[in-house]
Write a protein that binds this DNA or RNA. Sequence first.
DNA 1: CCCTTTAGTTATCATTTGATAACTAAAGTT
DNA 2: AACTTTAGTTATCAAATGATAACTAAAGGG
Lengths: 142, 142
Amino acid sequence: MDENALFTKLVSFTTSVHRVTQELSLNAKADSITPIQYNILEYVTVSQSVTPSEISDCLHMSMPNTSRELRKLIEKGLIEKIGDLGDRRKHYIRLSNEGETMMKEAFATIEYRFQARIQNASKEDLKEIDRALEILQTKLFY
Amino acid sequence: MDENALFTKLVSFTTSVHRVTQELSLNAKADSITPIQYNILEYVTVSQSVTPSEISDCLHMSMPNTSRELRKLIEKGLIEKIGDLGDRRKHYIRLSNEGETMMKEAFATIEYRFQARIQNASKEDLKEIDRALEILQTKLFY
DNA sequence: CCCTTTAGTTATCATTTGATAACTAAAGTT
DNA sequence: AACTTTAGTTATCAAATGATAACTAAAGGG
């Protein structure tokens, strides 16, 4: 196995992934939030109950900027902040009902486009895709 | 095959891909260029000889903004603009020698981290990864 | 030749994002 | 009790990005 060739393949692969995910999510998010705010909502949706510090770490943004964007999302009524009972410095962020509705809509749009993209795939193709996703997820993109 | 489950898997997969590529390319780019300028250089590197319109389309940015960023990259000596001989409205963008050097360095950093990431993978693992990349590239992220 | 389309530019403005300093308050440590 | 660390906030500034209007110049079509 030529590892350099594998790297080249990876570069073109990740480029494709970025392009396709961008196409799938184009205009899926409400106009009332910025791209970064959407990223935060997406992260909160997937991870459920995270602290501002975790958001800061995982999305590679500074605490002050994280704090600002979380405040804006709270002002927009999309998330809620709950204090930790044990450690009163800590807070947990979770989606509000409104936030959940918004994210469900966004995901529905994206899923619709995804289904359109794989509508011509055979059952065997889908199985192969499923297996390939699993392999890469565990062995490369862990 | 449950297509909804497949979608969920896709969401978590693309999130991972984004996170890992971000980790691999963290600080790989020179400080003298902005993230968007890096994206343009990456696109030019991979595609070779593209027009401003293509860059505008593929990177989802408006022509005026594309034009501005290309001008900045030319001022920094990283790309060159060559007029089309037949159609004098068209131009082709390509990396300058300096731009190639910069991108080679960036890619070397990224590749080094990539090799570190797969150093524990067996030959069979690498074969599987290679095959999985191919399947997804052709059947999902085309 | 006139009209329309294509390719790209320049200028300008608003918004978003990034970075830093200075701060509060709670928790942990000695 | 004093000190340090952790978690988070507020304020402020600079830079990057996005959006729009108005423009030039060449190509294509009738």
